[in-house]
Every structure is written in structure tokens, then in C-alpha cells.
């Protein structure tokens, strides 16, 4: 069916999709607050489990903060495409004359802004609570900023592969945890290096490379995965 409307540029499509998804996130602030609350609560569990000794908490804090951030991203990525899949708008997107990789990337970007980015912004607060030395706070912020981009994209791929599967939650974690291993290693090492007085730049550069690489590869894989899920 020929349409009398001209095709939009990819940038316009991206922007439109980004705003649409952003607006839909804004309508349910609870979904935005949940991962932050989860982060907060799990952080509280660690001193309770490990004991309140500040020195020990300080040495463990880079790892704790990063693992909890990973778990929080795991928790939210299950729902990334779910609502769009259920109300059929994902099917519309797949039929639209635009590459699914671009529209999916727009959704993932909006999702990242509401989850990963917010988590990054509040992370120094939790770092202070766990006794992370001040030298590590800025590195924590930067490493999470770059790292959550990777975590969100990988989580989106897992979500795209499992939306059409009943009880896909556990499967999702099996699929994406191994892929997240390098992000976790680079992130924690950067923060630990900063705490120990070293130079974390090389680790942050590696994280940045991972983020750029996944920005290139992940949208294509997400697009392919969404098509598979829609076809099945």
C-alpha cells in the first residue's frame, strides 16, 4: 500500500521513537523508582551480611556496587520490550519501513536514560554509604556511566530474545550474565585502581571501547532477535 506521506529521516525516526518510549516511561514513575530502590536495599544487605567494619566494607565496596548495578540492570531489562510486545506496537515497528535496529536503539536509549543513567547519578551516594574512599567516587561515576550503556544493550538483546517465551526471566539471566563479565571486570578494576591511588584511565578506556563496540553491534543483534521473536 503506497503511502502519501514521505519517509522520515532516520534521525527523525530515532527521535520520535525515543520520545514516545520516554513518555511511556514517564507515565509509570514506579518503574523508574524500582531499580533504584532495589539498588538501595541490596546495598543495605551487604553491611548486614558482612558486618559493619568500615575498612572491610571500603575494600569490598567497588565490587559490591558494581555487582548490584549489574543485578539491577538484569532486573529491569526483562521488561524492556514486554509492553511494546504485548500491545502490538512492536509488530507495527517491524512492519514500518525503517530499520528495526534504529527504532530499537531509540527505545533502549530512552530506557537507559531512565534506569542506567539515573543509577549512575545516585551511585556516589551509595558509594559513600559503603565507605568507598573519595578518590574512587568520580571513577565509580564514570565507569558506571560507560558500563551501564553496555549492560543495558546486552540486557536489551536478552530481552529481545526472550519476550515471546513464557517464564523467560530465569533464561534471560542465563543468557546475559556471561556476556556481562568483561563489563564487570573492567568496571570494578577501574574503581579499585582509583581507590588504590593508581591510574584508572586505561580501564575506563576499555569500558568506553566496550560501550562503543556494543553500540555498533548490539542494535543489529537486537533487531534480528526482535524479528525472530515476532516470527515465532
Amino acid at each position: 500500500m503506497p503511502s502519501d506521506r514521505p519517509l522520515l529521516s532516520l534521525r527523525a525516526v530515532f527521535l520520535r521513537q525515543f520520545l514516545r518510549h520516554g513518555r511511556s516511561i514517564m507515565t509509570s514513575p514506579a518503574d523508574v523508582a524500582n531499580p533504584l530502590l532495589f539498588f538501595f536495599m541490596v546495598i543495605t544487605l551487604f553491611p548486614l551480611g558482612l558486618g559493619p567494619d568500615p575498612a572491610r566494607l571500603a575494600t569490598l565496596s567497588p565490587g559490591i556496587l558494581w555487582v548490584v548495578a549489574l543485578l539491577a540492570s538484569l532486573m529491569v531489562s526483562a521488561k524492556l520490550f514486554a509492553s511494546d510486545f504485548e500491545d502490538g506496537s512492536l509488530e507495527q515497528l517491524a512492519l514500518a519501513p525503517y530499520p528495526l535496529a534504529v527504532t530499537a536503539l531509540a527505545e533502549v536509549s530512552a530506557h537507559w536514560l531512565a534506569t542506567g543513567f539515573l543509577l549512575t547519578l545516585v551511585s556516589p551516594l551509595f558509594g559513600v554509604m559503603l565507605g568507598l574512599p573519595d578518590e574512587g567516587l568520580l571513577t565509580l561515576l564514570v565507569s558506571l556511566l560507560l558500563g551501564t550503556i553496555c549492560l543495558t544493550l546486552i540486557g536489551a538483546l536478552g530481552s529481545a530474545l526472550t519476550i515471546n517465551i513464557r517464564r523467560g526471566g530465569l533464561l534471560l539471566s542465563l543468557l546475559i550474565i556471561p556476556l556481562n563479565v568483561p563489563v564487570l571486570i573492567f568496571g570494578t578494576t577501574a574503581v579499585r585502581e582509583a581507590v588504590l591511588g593508581g591510574n584508572p584511565e586505561s580501564w575506563l578506556a576499555l569500558l568506553g571501547a566496550l560501550a562503543l563496540g556494543s553500540l555498533v553491534i548490539a542494535p543489529l543483534a537486537i533487531g534480528a532477535a526482535l524479528r525472530v521473536s515476532l516470527d515465532s
Binding site: L161, L175, L179, I217, A218, A221, A225, V228, D231, S232
Partner: peptide
Amino acid sequence: EAYENKTAAARACAVLSLVG
């Protein structure tokens, strides 16, 4: 195993193993 449609299952696994 999770996909009922095995053609789709193979394509999903292909995407996953390539990313892996």
C-alpha cells in the same frame, strides 16, 4: 529448548551464539 517453533529457535540461537 524454550522456543516451541524450532525454526525460530535456531535463528534465536544463531544470534546469541554470534554475539557470544
